[in-house]
C-alpha cells in the first residue's frame, strides 16, 4: 500500500512505497550497480544514501541545508555542506560511477551546468525531477490562470525554492544539447507507479508526475 508521508526537505508530501522509502528514490537506487561509488547531490536527510548503503554502495553526499547535512553526518554518512551550483567544480573528472540529482534540478540556478558537471564527475548521471508538463499542472494554469500548486509542489510562487521547472520533453532536449546519452528513462504516475515503458514521449509528458533519467556521456 502506498501512503502519503510527512514533509521532507524538498517536497511537502511524497509517495512512499512498501518499507517507507520514497518511490522515486527506490527507482533511482535500482539504477545503481551494487558496489559502485556514488555522489548524491542534494541528498537531503540522507535517505537515498542509506538505501544505497544497503546495496553495498560507497556513497557521498552534498546538501545545501545545514539541518540536512548535520543530520546525515550524525548518522555517519559522508555528506558535505555545499551547493550544487558552486561546489561540483571542486570534484575531479571520473571520481564516481554515478552522480545523482534527485528532485533538486529545478532548485539549481544553472541546471545545464550542473548536469554537465555531473557527467564530467561521474560515468553516469541519474536525474529525477517533477514533470511540469503533467496534465494537472497544465489544467491548473489553463483553467485558473495561476501558478500551479500540487501535493508534490505545494509552495506558492513567491516562496518556492524551485526556480527552474521543466517538462520531460524539455529535459530531453537539454540532454541532446549537452551530449548526454540516455540509457534509461522512467516516468512515474502520482502513485509512484512506472508508466508503460513503450508509451510515446507525449504520453509520459502528460501523465508522468515525475521522471527519472539515467544518463551517460556520449563517447
Amino acid at each position: 500500500m502506498l501512503s502519503r508521508a510527512p514533509r521532507d526537505l524538498t517536497m511537502a508530501e511524497t509517495v512512499r512505497g512498501p518499507g517507507g522509502a520514497r518511490v522515486d528514490l527506490l527507482q533511482v537506487s535500482e539504477m545503481v550497480e551494487p558496489g559502485s561509488r556514488v555522489l548524491d547531490v542534494g541528498c537531503g536527510d540522507g535517505e537515498l544514501l542509506r538505501l544505497l548503503e544497503a546495496r553495498g554502495v560507497d556513497g557521498r553526499g552534498i546538501e545545501l541545508s545545514r539541518e540536512g547535512v548535520n543530520e546525515c553526518v550524525a548518522k555517519g554518512l559522508a555528506v558535505v555542506q555545499g551547493d550544487a551550483d558552486t561546489d561540483l567544480a571542486s570534484y575531479p573528472d571520473d571520481a564516481f560511477d554515478y552522480v545523482i540529482l534527485s528532485q533538486t534540478l529545478q532548485a539549481t540556478r544553472r541546471p545545464r551546468d550542473v548536469i554537465e558537471h555531473m557527467l564530467r564527475i561521474g560515468r553516469h548521471a541519474i536525474v529525477s525531477f517533477p514533470n511540469f508538463g503533467h496534465w494537472r499542472i497544465r489544467l491548473q494554469l489553463l483553467f485558473y490562470g495561476r501558478m500551479p500548486r500540487t501535493a508534490n509542489l505545494p509552495e506558492t510562487w513567491y516562496d518556492t525554492p524551485n526556480i527552474h521547472f521543466c517538462t520531460i520533453k524539455d529535459f530531453n532536449d537539454m540532454c541532446a544539447l549537452v551530449g548526454a546519452r540516455m540509457e534509461r528513462a522512467v516516468a512515474l504516475d502520482p502513485w509512484g507507479t512506472a508508466l508503460k515503458i513503450d508509451a510515446p514521449w507525449w504520453f509520459w509528458n502528460l501523465f508522468g508526475e515525475q521522471a527519472v533519467f539515467l544518463l551517460s556521456r556520449k563517447p
Binding site: D58, R60, R66, N70, V73, V79, V80, Q81, Y91, P92
Partner: peptide, 21 residues
C-alpha cells in the same frame, strides 16, 4: 574549512563537512 573540503574532494577522499549554527 570549505577549502579543506574542496581539497579533499579533489583527492576523492571520504569527507563529511558540517557547519554548525
Amino acid at each position: 574549512s570549505r577549502a579543506v573540503v574542496h581539497a579533499l574532494n579533489a583527492g576523492g577522499a571520504r569527507v563529511s563537512f558540517a557547519e554548525i549554527e
